[in-house]
């Protein structure tokens, strides 16, 4: 597997990039497999054993939430975020960079504002609980479990996602500036969704 792009980067950055890519792979695999297994077991319980897992639905929802928010940055880096080229595509590479750079700055401002509100939301609603954890505990131990685990960390995923994505945007902006200053190939400096050279990141 080819993981993380390493060209003309300092060692620490390449190492970090590899570690991050590894994290993305491991997380994707674990979350996807868990969803499939839980849903499959749910069908089995319901149809074959005439019983149903009271917590399955809720846990699967949270797995989807984790997948969405922890992987947005990786999705951006892989060029999964759809954008329009019909206008910017007509411009020269330099002009495209000049248009896209402030757009990414704007998006970063938005995301960081959102993150700030997200932290507020998580602390305001930390008294909400995750019922499924208690259901699972009760199902496994046969005794009444009432941990009433706080939803705080689930809600914190929203600001975390914003910060991850803005970090990617900031790196994308650094690449764009380097491209504009002639320190790097301008074509390769275009952000992932606009770059016709497909990213070699986790391929």
């Amino acid at each position: 597997m080819k993981v993380g792009s390493t060209h003309d980067r300092p060692d620490w950055f390449a190492a970090f990039s590899r570690a991050y890519a590894g994290f993305v792979i491991v997380l994707s695999v674990i979350l996807m497999m868990l969803i499939v297994v839980i849903m499959g077991v749910q069908v089995f319980f319901r149809y074959v054993l005439n019983d149903s897992l009271i917590w399955a639905e809720e846990i699967c929802r949270y797995l989807l939430v984790l997948m969405t928010f922890l992987l947005v940055g990786a999705a951006f880096e892989r060029g999964e975020m759809v954008c329009l080229h019909f206008l910017t595509g007509r411009l020269s590479v330099r002009s495209r960079l000049l248009v896209l750079l402030p757009m990414h700055a704007l998006m970063t401002v938005f995301l960081l504002t959102l993150a700030w509100y997200g932290i507020g939301f998580a602390s305001l609603n930390s008294h909400f609980t995750i019922p499924a954890i208690d259901f699972i505990g009760t199902a496994l131990t046969g005794r009444e479990i009432n941990l009433a685990l706080s939803m705080y960390w689930m809600y914190m995923l929203v600001p975390v996602a914003c910060v991850i994505l803005s970090a990617h945007f900031i790196f994308a902006m650094i690449r764009m500036v380097r491209g504009l200053l002639g320190l790097a190939d301008p074509e390769a400096a275009l952000p992932p969704g606009h770059n016709l050279i497909p990213s070699d990141w986790i391929r």
Binding site: E57, P131, F135
Partner: peptide, 28 residues
């Protein structure tokens, strides 16, 4: 007895319907 019954999946309701012999299922 044995009726696959849609409930809102919360412990109280699950308990009640199991006591009645039904097979409670949490369908969205």
């Amino acid at each position: 007895k044995g009726l696959k019954t849609r409930i809102v999946p919360i412990p109280l309701h699950k308990e009640i319907w199991q006591k009645l012999g039904a097979n409670p299922i949490g369908v969205p």
